[in-house]
Design a protein around this nucleic acid. Structure first.
Lengths: 153, 153
DNA sequence: GCGATTTTGTTGAGCGTTCAACTATTCCGG
DNA sequence: CCGGAATAGTTGAACGCTCAACAAAATCGC
């Protein structure tokens, strides 16, 4: 069976490469800053953020995996590391004996509080300061469309 | 010295999280597809693409690093791996005795030719098919702005 | 020219992610 | 209820990336 490849035209090509370059440069930059200033990669920062926003600062592992868009394996390894750092604690889930609950410790909350201002400043400087309000709005709609498209199918 | 943190307002918050989720989901998806169908991560695919587009299919390591937006160390490791796969060969640079030149082999070109249609189809399905022409245009401008902003400063 | 500096590229250790395999528990059909 | 399927989470190996340290050659300043 022959299937025609729908190649990218030059405009699409440029869009795709610019997007790739931009998103990689952005996440590399923020990751490096966070690692330097707070001693944690961005993925771990996100885990702490999610836990901090939730009642009792505790979440089932699988919920946390969904919220951070990571695989169970990845989260398992990550929480193991956060646990040895003393930022997260694991407890058995009372309602499901297979389950584990990740709990943000006070030290974890403090680490997050220390890291947040610098990181937010970085997001602002590297992303929002570069774009017009209209572009920010466009980016939000585009991103939400993509999220729906990627997680829907 | 007290510096006020310019926190994100709820709209910016949502924009930032949607963008993070979308770009991670997109690159994860494409990376997984490429790994499954072509046995290479997206970063290696990009190296082969850049080499394939250039006269004689050869580039100095440092140029290749710039073009792919990667560190010298990363590229060194990557090319080492591509070399054992037989897709790239390294030669001494005739004009600079410090230098190395990465050359795309015929096998590498063939691997790229085999991988490209599926990957391009993936880019189209996961990105362009989801967006309106206007949004694609917006995304191009936003990305180009960000690239300039991130690589300029 | 010559010494200091910069540039080029590599290396190895440490870390985070992926993938497949696995255990334990819960859910579901009959 | 009971047996099979689905779900929750972990584990270890392989891999790619980062970082710092390094060697070698080119370039700059005087």
């Amino acid at each position: 069976m022959v299937v025609m490849t729908r190649w990218l035209d030059p405009d699409e090509q440029q869009t795709w490469r610019a997007f790739l370059t931009a998103s990689r440069a952005l996440s590399d930059t923020l990751d490096r800053e966070l690692q330097r200033d707070a001693g944690m990669p961005h993925a771990y920062y996100e885990i702490l953020v999610r836990l901090s926003e939730v009642p009792d600062r505790r979440l089932r592992m699988s919920e946390l995996a969904d919220l951070t868009g990571s695989s169970r394996s990845r989260l398992s390894h990550a929480v193991a590391r956060l646990e040895t750092a003393g930022w997260v604690r694991r407890e058995d889930c009372p309602t499901d004996r297979r389950g584990q609950v990740a709990v943000l410790t006070d030290a974890g909350f403090a680490a997050l509080a220390a890291a947040a201002p610098g990181h937010v400043e970085g997001v602002r400087r590297h992303l929002f300061d570069a774009l017009s309000p209209a572009q920010v709005d466009q980016l939000r709609r585009i991103s939400e469309t993509l999220v729906a498209h990627l997680t829907g199918s």
